[in-house]
Computed example of a mutant assay.
Amino acid sequence: MKLTREFYAKETLQVAKELLGKVVVHEVNGVKLKGKIVETEAYIGSIDKASHAYGGKKTPRLEALYGKPGIAYVYFIYGMYHCFNVITEKEGSPEGVLIRAIEPIDGIDEMSKLRFNKVYNELTKAQFKNLSSGPSKLCIAMNINKENNKQDLCSGNLYIEESMDKEKIEIIEAKRIGIDYAEEAKDFKWRFYIKDNVWVSVK
């Protein structure tokens, strides 16, 4: 079952934690690519110097950040990679959660081809572990790009659903990655991940 608008409209840190264990689905050319979310990062524009929208910054690139909860914010970094975020709280409040790592579940052959141009059986152990253990890696493996920016996750072919796996998870809270420029915000423990999951990008 797809997550509803009400799920995303909650407080951002809560959503970041509750997304762990949920499943990202992207239906591409008749194939469902699926991965369990194992790591997230929260961003709250009003108080967060690591946020693209800190200080009320508004540009065409940031339009999605100010959109309604439950839409995708996909942005380009380093001129070559994408990152996938979900918008939270309420429209007009620039808050969201970065999906930082997933554990591949279904469509793994297709994900392997997208990421390494090989089928799953041809991957080395290191390649398999690196298939989706980072925000840009998972975007390549899940075929998520700028075309998905502003897409409504409550409808359409990119969405997040409840997991059938009811295993209890232990959540670790840690500092976010790659934001040393963000002054005091670099120390916020707004990264959340499933303890002992091998797909987590940084432990």
Rank of each mutant, 00 (worst) to 15 (best):
S133M: 00
I144T: 02
G79L: 05
V86S: 02
M164F: 13
E89A: 06
E39H: 10
G35M: 09
Q127F: 06
D106I: 00
F84Q: 08
M111N: 06
Y54E: 10
I177D: 01
R61K: 10
G45M: 05
V119L: 05
I177Q: 11
A185F: 11
Y43Q: 11
V198F: 12
T59L: 05
N143S: 14
I140A: 11
N149G: 10
S155I: 13
E173A: 15
L13I: 11
I140Y: 08
A126I: 13
T59N: 07
P94V: 03
L65I: 12
E103W: 00
S46Y: 13
D196F: 01
N197M: 00
M1A: 11
N130A: 13
K49Y: 04
R100P: 00
L123H: 05
K10E: 15
W199E: 07
I87T: 02
E122L: 10
A9Y: 03
F192C: 02
I144S: 02
I108V: 15
L62I: 04
S133C: 09
M164K: 15
Y81T: 02
D152M: 01
N29T: 01
K129E: 12
Y75A: 08
N29P: 00
V86R: 07
L65Q: 14
G107Y: 03
E27A: 09
K22N: 10
E91I: 09
E184L: 09
S133G: 11
V74N: 02
K195W: 02
I77Q: 07
Y8V: 13
K125S: 14
S132E: 08
V24I: 14
I171T: 03
Y81M: 01
Y78F: 13
C154P: 01
L3I: 11
N121Q: 15
I177E: 01
M142F: 14
Y120L: 13
S112M: 00
C139F: 06
C83L: 15
D180M: 03
V31Y: 03
W199S: 13
H26Y: 11
V38R: 02
N130L: 09
Y120A: 12
R100V: 04
K34N: 06
L153E: 07
P94D: 01
G107S: 02
G134Y: 02
K129A: 15
A141E: 08
L13A: 08
A101P: 02
L131R: 12
E173S: 15
K36V: 14
E173Y: 08
N157Q: 09
I77C: 09
V97M: 10
E162Y: 12
E162F: 08
K32V: 09
L62K: 05
K2V: 12
A185S: 15
K137G: 06
M164W: 09
K146W: 06
